[in-house]
Amino acid sequence: MRATLMYGPGDVRVENVPDSVIKHPTDALVRVTASCICGSDLHPYHSMSAGNGPARMGHEFIGVVEDAGSAVTTLKKGDLVVSPFAISDNTCEFCRENLQTSCSHHEANFWDGIPDEGGQAEAVRVPLADGTLVKLPVAADSELIPSLLTLADVFGTGYHAALKGGVNERTSVTVIGDGAVGLLAVMSAKRLGAEQIILMGRHKSRTDLGLEFGATDVVAARGEEGIAQVRELTGGHGSHVVLEAVGHTPAYDQAVGIIRPGGVISRVGVPQYNEAPVGFDSLFGGNITLTGGPAPVRAYIDELMPDILSGAIEPGKVFDATTGMDGVAQGYRDMDERRSLKVLIRPSL
């Protein structure tokens, strides 16, 4: 079978690899029908040491169950399923608290921690299949597939940001970042009732989609100028909630600059820094809460899916390009150079 491997910075290849097979009774074998490239995949694309490659790529996918281990009880051959980016048994103490990203099962991990497996491939072995995979009530060729695929990561992550931030109809919200997660954080804030949603982004095609998703204002400026514009839009006080969907230090500094006293900064952009200032002049003095983290998207799928199935929302609009396996490397380049927002992969093409 063919799969995507990253060898080092800027070096992505699609190669023939050994077929994925069942290894444990709790595994399922899934033939991938749709996957995608994530903005977080660009972090190793920029910085991964060649000594750590090749690494299998992909943590968001939909596919058809081809086989299941003897201990799998909720899935059968032919089921169409979506996989969250975190593997979980969905039964441990943390999973019962809707924190599947901290699942205590010894086989649980993020997809990039599972050797020789990844969703940007023709097939994948899924550990802890009963807990991880969610059945979809549509056919593999449904027009809803792009939107349902966002449940694997970016929609659930944007929703997590808004939920952890405490967004409601009484909060003003600023979203930092016009990538897929940021745009779906806008959609999520709108879904939770926010009436003022400021989107900070510089790419017009993306911010236009953000306006369609529910943003009321767009601020293209960064740094002190951007902070000043947000404060002007919020009566000088700043936003009640800031959703930081980038993960770089300037985005965090911007969040601190625009948060209202007593407000909440919710970070879901994969951090590319290990320290964030929390002293008196940043968070402590203003009674500001810092929250966020890797989204337990498994906890949100059942809640978010009905609105996709009904057509009430269309988060799949974040996909602006589609490719087969042969075009995956170019898809990485296009996302890295901002020619594409998010690339959908159809292995059968």
Rank of each mutant, 00 (worst) to 15 (best):
A3N: 13
A3V: 02
T4D: 09
G8R: 12
G10I: 02
V12T: 00
N16H: 14
D19W: 05
D19I: 04
S20Y: 07
S20I: 02
I22H: 02
H24A: 15
T26E: 13
R31A: 13
V32K: 02
S35M: 07
S40R: 06
L42H: 04
S47W: 10
M48Y: 04
N52L: 15
G53A: 04
G58R: 06
G58S: 11
E60Q: 09
F61H: 07
I62T: 02
I62N: 06
I62Q: 11
G63L: 12
G63Q: 04
V65K: 08
E66T: 07
S70Y: 01
L75D: 03
K77G: 09
D79M: 13
S83T: 01
I87G: 07
T91H: 13
E93L: 10
C95N: 04
Q100P: 05
Q100I: 04
S102C: 08
C103H: 05
H105P: 06
E107S: 14
E107Y: 13
D112Q: 05
D112P: 06
I114E: 01
I114C: 07
E117R: 13
E117A: 15
R125G: 05
L128R: 09
A129L: 10
L133Y: 03
V134I: 14
A140Y: 06
D141N: 14
L144Q: 15
I145A: 11
L149V: 07
D153N: 11
F155M: 08
G156I: 00
K164V: 00
G165R: 01
E169T: 12
G177M: 11
A180F: 05
G182M: 04
G182N: 07
L184G: 11
M187G: 11
S188P: 12
R191H: 12
L192T: 01
E195S: 14
Q196L: 13
M200Q: 12
M200Y: 02
R202K: 14
L209Q: 00
G210D: 01
G214R: 00
D217P: 12
A228H: 12
V230K: 02
V230R: 02
V230N: 01
R231S: 07
E232W: 02
G236S: 11
G238C: 06
H248R: 15
H248C: 10
I258T: 14
I258R: 01
I259S: 02
I259H: 00
I259W: 00
S266V: 03
R267S: 14
R267W: 09
P271L: 14
Y273G: 03
E275T: 15
G279R: 07
F280W: 15
F280Q: 14
G285R: 05
G285P: 10
N287G: 14
I288M: 04
T291Q: 08
G293R: 01
G293Q: 01
R298A: 14
R298D: 07
D302W: 09
E303C: 04
M305C: 12
P306A: 08
D307C: 05
L309T: 01
G311I: 00
G311A: 06
A312C: 03
G316N: 09
F319I: 02
A321W: 11
T322F: 05
T322V: 13
A329C: 03
A329Q: 00
D334V: 02
L341W: 10
L341N: 09
K342Y: 03
V343W: 02
V343P: 05
R346W: 07
P347N: 10
S348I: 05
S348P: 03
